[in-house]
């Protein structure tokens, strides 16, 4: 489904990604981990076209999307969340979703009753049912993250990129978020999840890819990767993980 081939990207002389390759098959849930500043978010930006790769190729569904703008990759079925949640504070929760629906589906001209019910249903499922008509600025951080997750589902995407979906959450909230993602994955959606919480990653993903200083240092099944010496050195050894 997604092929990233020897992609490089630098910012003002600092290499953020060097020769990164990654393949994700349909239905897979891949964890993307690595220390802060290792290039995880940059990789998502490269894939979605926010900051295109300087070298290398990104293919999605067999199509070269390397230099496509973000709205074009979105139209092909790529959607994402952000490390710092981006919700539309001046709109209600439901309006946030309907805006995403309009943005993702050019044929929808106005919100019909069926659309409204579908969006309400999605919100209900992720526990935001009571907040439908609340302004998004009133949501707590975990709620904003959940809203972002629901938003990715609105336009029926092929690949979902989640950037630290449980960042800043308590263990209980993290567990709730993990359950939600698991439900999404169980319906056969392909996901890439960036996360620091290894417990969550190992329960969600069969496969993990590890970035360090902009390079892939490990890529394999969850068990293999979590026992890998280089990974332990680069990441786990330095951090006290729960």
């Amino acid at each position: 489904m997604l092929e990233v081939e020897r992609v490089s990207r630098s910012f003002g002389g600092v290499a953020a990604l060097t020769d990164v390759s990654l393949e994700v098959g349909a239905g897979e849930v891949v964890g993307l981990i690595g220390p802060n500043g290792s290039g995880k978010s940059t990789l998502l930006n490269v894939i979605t076209g926010i900051s295109p790769a300087e070298r290398g190729v990104v293919r999605f569904d067999g199509r070269d999307v390397t230099s496509l703008r973000p709205d074009r990759t979105a139209a092909l079925g790529l959607t994402r969340t952000f490390q710092t949640p981006r919700v539309l504070h001046r709109m209600t929760v439901l309006e946030n979703l309907s805006a995403a629906l309009f943005a993702g589906s050019p044929k929808v001209r106005r919100l019909r009753k069926a659309d409204r019910e579908r969006l309400n249903g999605l919100l209900e499922e992720c526990g935001l049912g009571r907040r439908v008509d609340e302004l998004a600025s009133k949501l707590t951080l975990p709620e904003q993250r959940r809203l972002e997750l629901v938003r990715t589902l609105v336009s029926d995407p092929k690949l979902i990129l989640l950037d630290e979906p449980a960042g800043g959450m308590t263990p209980a909230e993290t567990e709730g978020m993990a359950r939600l993602i698991a439900e999404v994955a169980a319906r056969g959606r392909t996901c890439i999840v960036i996360e620091h919480k290894i417990d969550m990653i190992s329960s969600l993903c069969e496969r993990i890819c590890v970035l360090d200083f902009g390079r892939v240092i490990a890529d394999g099944t969850t068990r293999e990767v979590l026992e890998d010496e280089a990974v332990l050195d680069a990441y786990l050894g330095r951090r006290d993980i729960a």
Binding site: T48, P70, D71, T79, R86, A99, A100, A103, G104, S155
Partner: peptide
């Protein structure tokens, strides 16, 4: 940026 990544 959000609008663009959502397909606008």
């Amino acid at each position: 940026l959000l609008a663009e990544t959502e397909g606008v």
